[in-house]
């Protein structure tokens, strides 16, 4: 009441205030517009970066794609080699590495989220696992070399799989724990109220609810290990010839790319770009596919 009165009594002042408010409002909305524009710009930069990477790979790699890439094994310069052994070796090692690492990571993530809240052991496991997320992968390769390769007297595909599995574990642990922690208490309580034991609640309710996030974590792990060179160099070594034996040295795309990209010979350099193109688009395709499948399942 008094406010209306006082504003009435000083009408010119109110108009002045209104003008100030208008000016302020203009400034406020201008600030908002500038920030909005900058945000759109940031997003465009992000998209442009992705486009630039993909375009580089297509421009340099696409011309080298032919049937021979998929039907011929790696050969010396000038002999029209392909990447068959490297592609197959990479698939085998990535699949087995992820297949070993995922269950372990899943169990550990579950332990951290469901059983070890606040316990000293849990904190220790979490810390070590997180520190290893940023470990240079060559050190993990070196460790597996000392653990598996040197004692058994030779490089082998399985040693490569184990090295990749060790890289997979901390990634899956992190996403599993994060995703399980996000599940609402109400959902757990509902399951418990129905008389389900805790383990059933976790497996049937929590895992299902956290499926999306966990799959994203596994996909990130796939992306990470599919392009790893350093841990394979001293574990599965690489193989110039066709070999599916896990007890013998095994070829892989990243190691082949690494060696070919730095060579003097045009056909090897071309194959390196083809390999880079295949890895990147393969990993991207798996990611997109999994997202589509997950969304369709809902």
């Amino acid at each position: 009441m008094s406010a209306t009165l006082s504003s009435h009594s000083t009408l010119p002042g109110a108009i002045k205030n209104l003008n100030v408010a208008k000016a302020l409002g203009r400034r406020r909305s201008r600030a908002s517009t500038v920030v909005k524009a900058l945000c759109v710009l940031a997003t465009l930069i992000g998209l442009a970066l992705l486009a630039s990477i993909l375009l580089t790979l297509i421009v340099r790699g696409f011309g080298g794609i032919g049937l021979g890439v998929f039907t011929e094994v790696t050969k010396p310069p000038g002999s029209n080699g392909g990447l068959l052994n490297a592609i197959v070796g990479s698939l085998i090692q990535t699949v087995i590495g992820v297949a070993i690492g995922t269950p372990v990571g899943l169990l550990v993530g579950t332990y951290l989220a469901e059983y070890a809240r606040g316990s000293t052991l849990g904190n220790a496991v979490r810390f070590v696992s997180d520190v290893l997320l940023s470990a240079p992968s060559i050190l993990i390769g070196l460790f597996i070399y000392q653990l598996v390769v040197a004692p058994f007297g030779g490089f082998s595909g399985i040693a490569g799989c184990i090295a990749l599995a060790v890289i997979v574990i901390p990634i899956v642990v992190r996403t599993t724990e994060d995703m399980l922690s996000l599940i609402p208490v109400a959902m757990r309580e509902a399951a418990m109220a129905l008389g389900a034991p805790k383990w059933k609640m976790i497996v049937q309710v929590c895992y299902r609810a956290a499926k999306d996030g966990i799959v994203t974590g596994v996909l990130l792990a796939v992306a990470r290990v599919a392009g790893e060179t350093a841990p394979l160099l001293f574990t599965s070594l690489g193989n110039l010839n066709w070999s599916l034996s896990l007890t013998k040295p095994m070829a892989s795309l990243p190691v082949t790319i690494y060696q070919y990209a730095g060579s003097a010979f045009d056909d090897w350099v071309q194959l390196a770009w083809v390999g880079a193109l295949l890895i990147t688009f393969g990993v991207l395709a798996i990611n997109i596919l999994a997202r589509v499948v997950l969304r369709g399942g809902k």
Partner: peptide
């Protein structure tokens, strides 16, 4: 690394 191309050519 240096002799790798010739070793692989010989191998072939």
């Amino acid at each position: 690394t240096f002799p790798a191309p010739v070793y692989s050519k010989w191998a072939e």
